[in-house]
Write a protein that binds this DNA or RNA. Structure first.
Lengths: 346, 346
DNA sequence: TTTCTATGGACAAAAAATGTCCCGCATATT
DNA sequence: AATATGCGGGACATTTTTTGTCCATAGAAA
């Protein structure tokens, strides 16, 4: 309940959250470090002298701290406030610091961490979808080409995309040819869902995967295939999921030699039909028409969507070589696990 | 729960609360008035064109409104936010607007409305006390004389006054001589409670009420009485309750002629031993040494404390002639009833 | 006593918010 | 069809606020 309220507030008055967190953490620091002075607080909380002073004065006016010659200390009321806000604030601000930690460590544009773990609570996927939808709508420009991949994570986005002004001039395409059986999660279908959700156009493209090498050669030169490959060159935005290498291979009924390759290459993550090892190296790729990793570098808006602790390793594998402009929307379960892995490896 | 959180927030980031309310009410207005423009919204919400513009842009960035050629309208997400915040915000902001309405209508410095009704929930008295204590501590200066009256409302304040720097140099006195039987609520005792709570000094003074007219004359010239009256001249702050005229008269075992006078004069409220009618006229006053209404005008800090719907009429009676610098701390029950009475009389 | 660190005052410089225009455009009205 | 109204958005000079920074001074500790 409280958490909902915080989320709602973050929407309504985003400026407030910074201030609130600043003051709350200052209060915490004052509580722990006994009487503390303005400059000292500034150092600990990474605030300039003036900022520290402002915070201090605000807290004093609120009656939360007492401010005397030997420094500032928390009043009884301040202590009550601290304990009454502890759970919800720490929860919220914990996810925030987690997100910033990942942004810096992975080295990508932005990480958004929603509460929960989609492995445990399935509804968390919808929250990820919602957040991703918001990023997409906010950042997408006019008249652009958007490539989407398959997977349930990406499929969770369209329900949260309403009609917006620029939408009509967008074109959604599948980032690759068809996957396996589960038709609900195919990239083709999902691009249609997107287009339908916001009133945009879309191109379908079906690429039979289980073909012989010769058939592939022929197919690649088909007008439809060439057209698709031209679109990939002009792609402005990619919305994609990240899969666990083993699960993906299993879902795709991969051949024994494929499995062998993945096993030997220690593949962990999968995205766009590429399999990545721990260090982001491509160890295998599906033979299909689709967007290429080199092309990704040129795409200005890249949104990766994946959640659940079980996907942490896969996400990290892909992120090791992901373009800097990537935005990752994930959940607390995956984010926490990613942090644990990263800390272990250092 | 949510309401608690808002209260906590009001303490932690008070600057933002009006911003939040501004945006929330703007969102409500946009929701109701269909597509509405910047200037029009400004008129309805009493915002300048620029302010309206800022609010509009903030709401747009939050994805809560859609802003098109024909004006701004609420998105689905905005509608959800609206309904999810409705109860808590309306509750909170309702009390706020109630407070401002009373400030303007009564014409006093400040009105604070706490949630609840002390007639119904007795713990609300403590909240009033807490809020009054905060006002007092914030606004009281150094080395001042504070006069307090009796009554359970004022008695609810001391528990929330901690020791603060200026406290040692304060002096608490009773605003009048003794009241009736209930010793727990006598002004003398309460001044002692205040002094004890914050480590200040206090003067006791006992004035026997049930004396003949001649005895009064003599008593008034006693050194102790004269000393007390001199203190009243120098009083810097008054903390007082407001009583219902009839109940007070009954509690005081008033004589038949007194009751007759109160009845004829249509006394509604009581404060400092003065009885007031609907228009704030003094219809009767107790024969006792105490602070005078004329002196009140000179007192810079006046805090009136009273709650419960049943006291609404009494509060209004006193407030009709209360000095402008008065701060009233009351509860929702009383405030709502006061508003009803005021609206009926216009 | 000396030294250290604290607060609070002060103030110029920088940054942000505000009021107030105008423009082009769509829609409603005459 | 012509006109008027109300819309968003750009622009800009002018406040108003915030920020960085210095200094004076007062307790606490050494």
């Amino acid at each position: 309940m409280n958490s909902d309220f915080l989320e709602a507030q973050r929407k309504l008055v985003p400026e407030m959250m910074d201030l609130m967190q600043q003051r709350y953490s200052a209060l915490k620091i004052i509580d722990m470090n006994g009487p503390i002075g303005r400059r000292q607080l500034g150092q600990v909380a990474r605030l300039s002298e003036r900022e520290a002073r402002n915070v201090l004065e605000a807290l004093r006016d609120a009656g939360l701290i007492r401010i005397e010659k030997e420094g500032a200390s928390v009043t009884e009321e301040g202590r009550q406030m601290l304990s009454s806000l502890r759970t919800s604030m720490d929860d919220w601000s914990g996810r925030n610091t987690l997100a910033r930690y990942l942004e810096q460590t992975i080295g990508i544009r932005k990480v958004i961490v929603v509460p929960g773990d989609s492995d445990v609570t399935s509804s968390v996927k919808a929250v990820i979808g919602k957040e991703a939808a918001e990023q997409f709508v906010t950042l997408i420009g006019d008249g652009q080409i958007v490539a989407v991949t398959g997977g349930s994570s990406v499929a969770a986005i369209p329900p949260f995309i309403g009609k917006f002004p620029e939408a009509e001039r967008l074109r959604f395409i599948a980032a690759r040819g068809g996957v396996g059986e589960d038709i609900g999660l195919q990239a083709n279908v999902i691009s249609a869902l997107f287009a339908q959700a916001c009133g945009a156009t879309y191109s379908t493209f079906y690429y039979p995967e289980t073909l012989s090498e010769e058939a592939h050669e022929v197919f690649r030169k088909e007008p439809a295939a060439l057209e698709m490959m031209a679109q990939y060159e002009k792609t402005d935005c990619v919305l994609h999921g990240i899969g666990d290498a083993k699960k993906m291979a299993a879902m795709r009924n991969s051949s024994d030699e494929e499995l062998e390759l993945l096993e030997q290459g220690k593949a962990l993550g999968e995205a766009f039909g590429y399999y990545f090892d721990e260090n982001g190296n491509v160890v295998y790729r599906l033979r299909t028409v689709g967007i290429q990793t080199e092309q990704l570098e040129q795409v200005p808006l890249l949104i990766a969507v994946a959640g659940g602790a079980s996907k942490a390793a896969a996400i990290l594998a892909y992120m090791a070589s992901a373009p800097r402009q990537t935005i990752l929307v994930t959940d607390e379960g995956a984010a926490a696990e990613m942090q644990r892995i990263l800390r272990k490896n250092t």
